[in-house]
Simulated scan of single mutants.
Amino acid sequence: MTPTPAVQPFFEEEHEEFRGVAREFVAREVTPHYAQWDAEHLMPRSMWTAAGGAGLLGLAVPEEHGGMGLTDYRFRAVLDEELVRGGALGVALALHLNDDWVLPHLLAHGTAEQQERWLPRILTGELVTSVAWTEPGAGSDLRGVRTRAVRDGEDWVLNGQKTFIGNGISGDAALVLARTDGRAERAGEDSFSLFLVHRTDSPGYSAGKQLDKMGVRASDTAELFFEDVRVPGANLIGAEGGGLRQIRQLLPQGRLAVAVAASAVARATLESTLDYIRERTAFGTRVLDFQHSRFEVAELTVEVEVTEAYVQRAVHAFNAGALDVVGASKAKYWASERAKAVTDRCLQLHGGYGYILDYPVAQAYLASRLLTIFGGTSEILRETIGRDAASTG
Rank of each mutant, 00 (worst) to 15 (best):
P5D: 03
A51F: 12
L95W: 15
G233Q: 12
L97F: 15
T124G: 02
R183H: 08
V311F: 12
F318H: 13
G204S: 01
L366F: 13
W118M: 08
F164T: 08
S368A: 15
Q253S: 05
P360L: 12
G139F: 12
M68G: 10
V326G: 05
R338S: 15
E12R: 14
V102G: 09
V231C: 04
L211M: 12
F18G: 09
G243I: 05
N235E: 13
K209F: 05
G386M: 11
A320Q: 02
D275E: 05
A94N: 10
F195V: 13
G90W: 12
N159V: 09
D100N: 10
A222C: 15
P203R: 02
A268C: 15
A54M: 11
P44S: 04
V361C: 14
R294F: 06
V287W: 05
A207H: 02
T285M: 02
I356D: 13
Y310A: 11
G66L: 04
H350P: 03
E16I: 13
W101C: 01
L123R: 05
F318E: 14
K209V: 10
L97W: 12
L371R: 13
R387F: 08
V30P: 04
A314G: 00
T111H: 00
L106A: 01
R255C: 06
L70Y: 07
L357R: 15
P232E: 04
G137R: 08
R179P: 03
Y359I: 06
E40R: 13
R255N: 08
P62Y: 04
A51E: 06
V325C: 00
S378C: 11
V176D: 00
A341C: 05
D72I: 10
